[in-house]
């Protein structure tokens, strides 16, 4: 990843989040979420929230099945943001809930954003 650009130019400021947060599947996003302290999640949330509508408008210019690699990376980043926002927005004190069923006993299916053919 040395100096290589993976996001569209106008979103280059979000590049530092890509390696950790631009994740392709729900299971990876959830694992990342629950292993991240809430203070750290808040940093990601704040940076992404500030650009989220702009990212959405940018991505809506592409078809789901014909997205360039940098836009697809940006979509993964946005989807991780959407899927990990709940602890911040629901005022949890940690990134997982005490009483919920243990994640390591749960098998999570993998689904891409593309609709089945």
């Amino acid at each position: 990843m040395t100096g290589e650009r993976s996001l569209p130019q106008q979103f280059a400021a979000l590049e530092p989040f890509v390696a950790e947060w631009a994740l392709p599947y729900e299971a990876e996003r959830l694992t990342k979420l629950t292993r991240t302290p809430i203070e750290e999640l808040k940093v990601f949330y704040d940076e992404m929230f500030a650009r989220a509508e702009e990212i959405k408008r940018y991505l809506e210019g592409f078809k789901l099945d014909a997205m360039p690699a940098d836009a697809a990376m940006l979509l993964d980043l946005l989807l991780t943001f959407i899927e990990t926002a709940h602890p911040i927005e629901l005022n949890w004190t940690a990134t997982d809930i005490d009483d919920a069923f243990a994640l390591d006993r749960m098998t999570i299916g993998r689904f891409t954003v593309y609709p089945p053919s």
């Binding site: 592409f62 979509l75 959407i82």
Partner: peptide, 8 residues
């Protein structure tokens, strides 16, 4: 899903 909005 047909659009990015649907994916979100």
């Amino acid at each position: 899903a047909r659009t990015v909005g649907d994916c979100l």
